[in-house]
Amino acid sequence: MRAADGRAPALSIRNLSVRYDTVHGPVHAVDDVSLDVWPGETVGLVGESGCGKTATALAALGLLPRPAGRVTAGRVLVGGRDLLTLGRRELQKVRGAEVAMIFQDPMSALHPAQSILAQVTEAVRVHAVDLSASAARERAVALLDLVGVPDARTRARSYPHEWSGGMRQRAMIAMAVAHRPRVLIADEPTTALDVTVQAQVLELLRRLQDEHELAIVLISHDLGVIAEMADRVAVMYAGRVVESATASALFACPRHPYTAGLLASLPRLDREGGAPRGHSRLTSESGRPAVRLPLPPRCALGQDREGCMADVPRLRPTGGAGHQAACHHAEELGAGPGHRLVEADLRR
């Protein structure tokens, strides 16, 4: 599928690095991350909170919180242009038009004191300035229709707090696809939703993707969602991509101990007791930024840390078909039987 027809990627992130200045000193939130997304393809970006997934996405669109965060290196190529070198005005023309983004919590991502209609209409008019106000409103209603908001014309006059979470996320998606962007970055789009609504929103994203050849970057910590949606997956740890592969290869045969650990930490119905085996489960790091070490605090392979600290493994091809991993022992891991998972297990 990738590059098979010789097309260029819709979005190409090259060697991106981002630094955050925190009260505890600078933090390398994103460290030399590269990522390609082809038209019509979904790339999953996986990792625990604080691993740099969101920072990567925000940096791509120049939305890093100021003045704490800034890009220190890299390029973000869309349509042959590097977004990071664009002036403010040009970047504004790209945002929402060529690259759109939706966020985790649609309640806080929408303005609380503006009607949904006003907000979608605004998204329509940003890049269609000569559209009349009434035409823009019509277009906004049509978009809400498109994303499956029932009775959109009347309901659009309500405020975000009067809508359900799923409907709010649909409104966000309506704004995002208003100008048929090439790329949609979806940052944990279903995390705040309950499971049935989650499935509907994912289904909507898939439909829009098919209709528009949309390239989607799907950021999630939920491997179930990734397994269901992604064609390819990049696993991030501590600001770096530690493994990248097609979804099927990654789930069937992870070649980095961190990925293996992530997979093993999923509850499995076919396993005795339902609980994962302790030794490969990751220590939870929620609530504070991930430790900025090149390696997980504990290696699932039981390899000595000093060796890896001295010679930090870099992302390298392993196992073919574009599979890459940053581990000296990727081949051993790929050969071992212990972490094989059937992809179907992950589907909910």
Partner: peptide, 9 residues
């Protein structure tokens, strides 16, 4: 929501 507004362009 301000981030959304910026993301809209």
């Amino acid at each position: 929501h301000v981030r959304t507004a910026r993301a809209k362009g």
